[in-house]
């Protein structure tokens, strides 16, 4: 299986675009990647390291963009979004309602990508707080094909965008990039009839495995990958989800705070549609435990086995209700 670090594929695609367009800048807050070395060397004048200064990263990027440049601003996801949140709000979210600001934030290490580095480097908030900001596009790819596709989108859409990237190599999901429609923002990767699993980013891979495991237990499960958290085509997403009598969401985010689970729950509620609904993600506390990503998932009930067991147990409880 061709597992590729999404970040590297994304940078490679930006590199190609920078060859053709000298209006593209790449700004980093002293954060690198092996794939970035070539870009730094080739485009010395258009690669700028602002130092460990995320606030200035956003402000410099804004200034360049106000002069018509296309800017990719690059940093580790939690610091990019949270150290500089007020800069994102003022100079990108607010400003872009009046002026064109094509700044594309690349946040590396969403969720528990940086597993053993502790709660400062975990990023369970970014999807929630970035969805909060008007005028922002929020992108959450599960594989490198999706991320590459997003680069093309970035060049043409003069709005601020946030792309949350997994820090680790992930297998390819999309073999046909044409399945990815930025206007729709999601793809039903697998159709089912009894349960629909809606997932994003890293958890889309796990959702596919969970669906497979459920099918072995005679439960047909669909999987929907939401790669565009904002804006997602809500009408089409609802049309896709409404057929499922049971829906679950899966993400590496805090729950009930505006991320994927909230988007889906609100969509169902707005349509007065009430399937059985379960959210899988992180509860309202930080993760101090040490260990691999899968170890941490297990501690939080997010490993494949726990999720399958939780789904089966809920299904069985609902079909054999204890009552009254």
């Amino acid at each position: 299986m061709d597992a590729i670090v999404i970040r590297d594929a994304l940078i490679e695609r930006i590199y190609e675009k920078m060859l053709d367009d000298d209006n593209i800048f790449f700004i980093s807050a002293d954060f690198g990647a092996p794939a970035l070395d070539k870009l730094r060397e080739k485009f010395g004048g258009r690669f700028i390291n602002v130092g460990i200064a995320e606030q200035n990263l956003i402000n410099i990027s804004t200034g360049l963009a106000l002069e018509g440049s296309i800017v990719f601003a690059y940093a580790i996801a939690p610091f990019l979004t949270m150290r500089a949140y007020e800069q994102l709000r003022t100079n990108l979210a607010i400003m872009s309602q009046v002026r064109d600001v094509n700044v594309n934030l690349i946040g590396v290490g969403s969720g528990l990508s940086y597993d053993v580095t502790g709660p400062t480097h975990h990023c369970l908030e970014d999807a929630c707080i970035m969805n909060l900001l008007p005028n922002f596009v929020v992108f959450s790819p599960a594989d490198h094909v999706t991320a590459e596709r997003f680069v093309d989108y970035c060049l043409g859409v003069k709005k601020p965008k946030y792309i949350r990237l997994d820090g680790k190599a992930q297998p390819r999901i999309y073999h046909d990039a044409d399945r990815l429609s930025m206007e729709e923002g999601f793809v039903e990767l697998r159709e089912g009839s009894e349960i629909g699993i809606v997932a994003t980013g890293y958890m889309t891979h796990k959702a596919l495995r969970v669906a497979e495991a459920l099918s072995k237990r005679a439960m047909t499960a669909g999987v929907v990958d939401v790669f565009m958290l904002k804006p997602v085509n809500e009408r089409k997403l609802y049309e896709t989800l409404r057929k499922y009598p049971r829906l679950v969401t899966m993400e590496e985010s805090f729950l009930r705070k505006g991320s994927l689970d909230t988007i889906v729950a609100d969509l169902l509620l707005d349509n007065n549609h009430h399937p059985r609904f379960t959210r899988f993600g992180f509860k309202d506390r930080y993760v101090f435990d040490v260990g691999s990503r899968e170890h941490l998932h297990k501690l939080n009930g997010l490993d494949e086995e726990s999720i399958v067991a939780a789904i089966l147990s809920k299904t069985s409880a609902e079909s054999n209700p204890v009552g009254p």
Binding site: I48, Q55, N56, I58, N59, I60, S61, T62, G63, L64, A65, L66, E67, G68, S69, Q87, N91
Partner: peptide
């Protein structure tokens, strides 16, 4: 000032 730096650089 930070935004102005980006403008000035461009």
């Amino acid at each position: 000032l930070g935004v102005a730096c980006g403008i000035a650089l461009a």
